[in-house]
Design a protein around this nucleic acid. Structure first.
Lengths: 235, 235
DNA sequence: ATAGCGTATATTGGATCCAATCAACAATTG
DNA sequence: CAATTGTTGATTGGATCCAATATACGCTAT
């Protein structure tokens, strides 16, 4: 009988972890992959999602595709029309405004709850993420880093559902990141404000930190709104 | 050939409307019915939802049931465990706190956007709903009226996704209404505050209106939290 | 010529069937 | 006797098949 040393458990855990996320069901796999593709802008708004086509592409039958589409519908990433199928929801100036209205309501609330309980580790993680963003070129990775930075600020809010909602809205905002980069250029991603938020949070100056966050979001909302306005005027 | 008079259209529209919501797919039907049952507290948290059982009860096959459960999962009303099935999410003091944290972030924001644009019709509708609530005994109907009253205040916010999210959270709050009524008794449902909010909104005193709303939500959150604390202490 | 109606085809919605997985219990081994 | 390993029954996940519906096109009648 083999002795159960602690080493066994930890090395096994490492091996399992390095194997990467393993989808336990086909539905899970399709849903996660499709969602990422939509959020990263690899599937444009308005695209019709044919069940059979997706099934072939993913190497599964139509059924897990259908269940995945249902979940994406509930996340407002696809529109379902009975007997007409699923269509990737369109993005627009109006939708962006909605997204920012929601974020401007939720994120300051989460930040306020989190600030008093933030640890040194949280703040360090935030600083690391800022540094990574400075070096990153790929817009998709940039979006992920930005999302994780914001979440690191809210990590100690202690309200799981609130945080889940915030994360979902942050992910939805990724669909607009490309426009933000197109309008502003990649160096000007408000890293100063990110640093200022961290600084204020570290000093537990909640009012100031939240004020910067609000201004940060407001600015981003304005940038994207202007981008859409000038673009739509051209057509 | 029959002449198309305007009367035809209006009377037909009436008939169709009176016929009630007609579900175009079995999935829609199952999803709406199940969601209502969960939110109204007719299915307790922790209940395992067997697919075959539900299929028999609704007179459909397991497939529309599965798709409906997927959507409810995305709405955080059921928990899915691979190969173990769906379970109605548990309610708790913590979950209630989450729900109120989200509502306290979203609803004041929606109210602020809506107040300047509220019409006389909106305000009248609000008054009607308050009157109906005074007369209503059934807690389920009471929850629906309360939800519709709040939504009438936010109706002109002009942000569809924000409003959809608010409505979803208001519906989720219905699961706690029974506790609220148990703790406070049905006459004391803060109708004074409802009236005060309407009054302030009518006079376009945004600050005051929003202040009352925040206090209103805070009070409700405290009531439910106390209820859970005393109940859990008994066990 | 055009509005309305009927038909054909593609696509989705739903049902049934089979395979995979989990939980509980029995058996076995040290 | 305890812990692990098979084994069995119930339940979910996935595949295939059939039915229902929407869109496009062609036809007819005024």
């Amino acid at each position: 009988m083999p002795v159960h040393r602690d080493d066994d458990r930890s090395s096994l855990a490492e091996i399992a972890r390095d194997a990467g996320p393993r989808y336990r069901t086909a539905t899970e796999y399709v849903e996660a992959t499709l969602r990422a593709a939509i959020l990263e802008g690899r599937i444009a708004g308005g695209t019709a999602l044919r069940q059979e086509e997706l099934a072939d592409a993913f190497g599964v039958s139509r059924m897990p595709v259908r269940e995945a589409l249902r979940q994406l519908e509930a996340q407002a990433l696809v529109d379902f029309m009975p007997h007409r199928g699923a269509v990737v929801t369109e993005i627009s100036a109006d939708d962006a405004a909605d997204n920012y209205a929601i974020r401007m309501a939720l994120e300051p609330a989460a930040f306020a709850l989190s600030i008093p309980a933030l640890t040194a580790e949280d703040l360090d993680r935030g600083r690391e993420l800022i540094a990574e963003m400075d070096a990153e070129q790929d817009p998709v990775r940039l979006g992920e880093l930005n999302r994780r930075f914001h979440m690191s600020l809210y990590a100690r809010a202690g309200r799981v559902k609130l945080l889940a909602l915030v994360e979902q809205q942050l992910a939805a905002a990724d669909r607009y990141l490309r426009f933000h980069l197109a309008a502003k250029g990649r160096d000007h991603l408000s890293q100063d404000e990110h640093r200022a938020m961290l600084d204020a949070a570290e000093k537990r100056e909640a009012e100031r930190a939240i004020g910067i966050l609000k201004a940060h979001l407001e600015k981003a909302a304005t940038t994207i709104d202007e981008f859409f306005r000038t673009r739509d005027r051209r057509s």
